[in-house]
Computed example of a mutant assay.
Amino acid sequence: MAGHSKWSQIKRKKGANDKKRSAMYSKHIRAIGAAVRSGGGGDPAGNLSLKNAIAAAKTDTVPIDNIENAVKRALGAEAGAAEFKEVTYEGYGPGGTAIFIEALTDNVNRTVADIRAVFNKRGGSLGTSGSVAWQFEKKGVLLLRDTAEAVQEIAIENGAEDIQESEEGLEISTGPADLYAVQEALSGAGYEIENAALTMIPNVLVTVEGDDVRKLLVIIDALEELDDVQNVYSNADMPEDEEEE
């Protein structure tokens, strides 16, 4: 999720129960397999989509063995095996918030029906293609606890576009193609990265407070629980204390 504190997202992931963590791992494995079968092959050096998928999986603590096995299975997939297609959906939540959804599916009709049902049952609405996508921009984002100048220098030298410092650490933004290079440079220099992933950054935030915070998070949680949904983003700016509550 994007649009509010990305550090809050880290806390949510780390606090996930075993069932949710297993589902998160499965989504990463599916993304890795789709990246391999997209035509880029199983070598991350020559497959940017695979590089980014593996980077995201690692920061969500997917075991290395699981990642390697996912690549091998995708390379050895038999003819006729399910082909997953990347699709996006757009909708609206409480307070006029925009919601952007990325999915990987082998059955588009099933996926759109499941997503529409979530919106309809929880007070949101599914929009048409292009209705909210213009409010977001794809970026690479890295989070680090270390705020040393050396970290910022390495990030800038390797393609970082913007660096924001907060009480919790650094938030580094990159172009989509530069995420992996910045991550590798920082890791190679011995810095621990809390999270690294491609994400959709909202251009303008919409303030959400009170009961609308709960309603929005209920919609987002329900969408994230769908097997076909990979990522859910919003342009909501919500008080962190209300979000945690």
Rank of each mutant, 00 (worst) to 15 (best):
A160V: 09
A103R: 05
A45V: 08
A55G: 05
P176C: 10
Y180H: 15
G76L: 13
N109M: 10
D241V: 12
A113C: 05
A31E: 07
V229H: 04
W134M: 00
D65P: 02
I54V: 07
E224I: 07
T147M: 02
E153R: 12
I156V: 14
N158H: 15
S166Q: 06
I154F: 00
E209P: 04
D146H: 00
N66C: 11
L50R: 07
T111L: 05
P176G: 09
A45R: 10
S8M: 13
L126H: 09
I154D: 03
E245Q: 05
L216M: 11
K6D: 08
A77S: 15
A189N: 10
N203P: 03
A77C: 12
R21S: 08
K11P: 02
E242L: 08
D178S: 14
V62N: 11
R37W: 05
D18I: 13
G175D: 07
G95Y: 09
K51R: 15
G41Y: 02
G123N: 10
A103M: 08
E78G: 07
T59I: 03
E224R: 15
L144K: 00
A185G: 09
A53K: 06
K58F: 03
D221I: 01
R110E: 14
E245D: 14
G169Q: 02
I67K: 00
A81L: 10
G127F: 08
E242S: 12
G140K: 08
M200N: 10
V87G: 00
F100Y: 12
E102S: 15
F100A: 07
N203Q: 05
T61C: 13
A177R: 02
L104T: 00
K121Q: 12
K138E: 14
N69Y: 06
V108G: 00
L217F: 13
S26R: 06
S125W: 01
N203V: 04
I10E: 09
D212E: 11
Q230P: 05
E240M: 12
L144S: 02
G39V: 04
R73M: 03
T147N: 03
L186Q: 03
E153C: 01
Y180V: 12
I54Y: 01
E245M: 15
I29Y: 01
A23R: 13
S187G: 15
S166L: 06
N107H: 05
Q152M: 09
F119N: 00
G46R: 08
G46T: 14
A113P: 05
Q152H: 01
S234A: 11
Q230V: 11
F84A: 02
G190S: 04
S129I: 04
G169M: 03
P94M: 00
S8E: 07
G40L: 03
V151T: 06
D18S: 15
K58V: 12
A185N: 11
K72W: 06
T97H: 04
N107P: 13
F100K: 09
S234G: 10
G76E: 15
E86L: 13
M238E: 07
A113E: 14
A155E: 02
F100E: 05
V36A: 08
E168C: 07
G124E: 07
A82T: 06
E149K: 15
E209A: 06
E245V: 14
G91L: 11
K58C: 02
P176V: 10
A53C: 11
L217Q: 14
A56I: 04
M238Y: 04
T199M: 10
G39F: 09
D212R: 03
G46F: 09
V87N: 00
G41N: 06
A189Q: 11
E243R: 08
D162K: 14
R214A: 05
A56R: 07
G124Q: 04
